[in-house]
Design a binder for these strands. Structure first.
Lengths: 199, 199
DNA sequence: CTTAACTCGAACATGTATGTACGAGTTTTA
DNA sequence: TAAAACTCGTACATACATGTTCGAGTTAAG
């Protein structure tokens, strides 16, 4: 969020937020992320309650449901980008992919749920713009794998990306349904995407 | 629906519905299927309007949003089962799967959207019971492929089924987004699932 | 052609979500 | 410690979805 951009109502002349205000904001964002990424149809009142904060207080910091959703998305995507910067994407593309999957498949999944559950409140363009940088990282890795002859080239690149998201999402659903354990999930993903991508 | 089960309010002594009533029901179900399988958050009022029928008339035939959803699901799943009875599942399992995909991937997709968009109105058990027969058909085909040594056995069967649904869903999204054509979709699916399943 | 089924719009009751206004009390900060 | 920022509950205005009731008009069926 680059901070300071939040559309708070009142602010001190110095531009600084008071410590208790910042605490409220943090609690709201944490609770919002938790709720929005776990199920659809979340209400502002629910977020406030889960955050242990009055509804009015929440509206003081996020003037509308939409602005709350925006803050959540920006924060989550920023976290994902940080995770990407952290992981080693050098070496064979298929092994790099495996590393990434094992490391952030659950982060990818959480973000996907979040996206799904706020998609009604945000404009597609806005959402797309924020998501693009992450998308481009994935595409870059896949393209490199294709150039190196590790990944197949007979499928559209966009489809390969979509399949990745789709299966990550599916794996999480399987865990929720009790048909897959959290330990199995990344291995199943690596195996499935491995054979799907292999040249 | 086996017909006659619909919870209509009044009915003639003979048990027969009048022709105009049946016409209304058909229009409602058609419009409902169209709407519910295309986007979430559909209201009863919208269905009525799309069907060209008064809201009160709709409630006369379907006493609640839930019962409308049930009728839609039962009708859609019945159609899917009919499609399965129609297709040739003999011969090599991978080829049978390709035939099925090419023939009913869009039907599978429509039903999945439908399910997603009524899931809030129906009990999970009820939904699961209706969907089980279809699930078992897919599982049977996959198991046969494994027994014949055509499909891999190192992945959970439930995961293979989920991957199928998941990718079908993804393919439809790609079409909506304009990144895949309706002609490409089934071929991409066959190629992707082919390499994902292959022993 | 007569009756019963059906359709319709309008209105009402209820519930829930969003966003705002008020005023009193609490916590930071300087 | 005093002023400003912040929080809180309560209450209000608005909007929208669900489901029901009423009564008058239309249509099908015997």
């Amino acid at each position: 969020m680059a901070d300071g951009k939040t559309t708070a109502s009142a602010r001190r002349p110095s531009g600084q937020r008071r410590a208790d205000a910042q605490r409220s904001i943090d609690k709201i964002l944490a609770a919002g992320l938790e709720l929005y990424s776990s199920r659809p149809g979340v209400s502002v009142a629910e977020v406030a309650e889960a955050a242990g904060v009055g509804r009015v207080t929440l509206y003081g910091h996020f003037p509308s449901r939409t602005e709350l959703a925006q803050a959540l998305i920006e924060r989550a995507f920023e976290e994902t980008e940080a995770a990407w910067r952290d992981v080693d994407t050098s070496g064979a593309a298929d092994e790099a992919l495996a590393r990434i999957l094992r490391r952030q498949w659950n982060l990818m999944e959480r973000n996907r749920n979040l996206r799904d559950n706020v998609v009604g409140d945000l404009s597609p363009q806005w959402l797309r713009e924020r998501h693009d940088p992450i998308l481009r990282r994935i595409e870059a890795l896949l393209t490199r794998g294709q150039d190196d002859g590790v990944f197949r080239t007979d499928l559209p690149l966009s489809w390969m990306v979509t399949a990745l998201y789709s299966l990550v999402h599916a794996a999480s659903d399987e865990i929720s349904a009790g048909r897959l354990t959290a330990e199995q999930a990344p291995e199943v993903l690596v195996a499935s995407l491995g054979s799907l991508y292999r040249a």
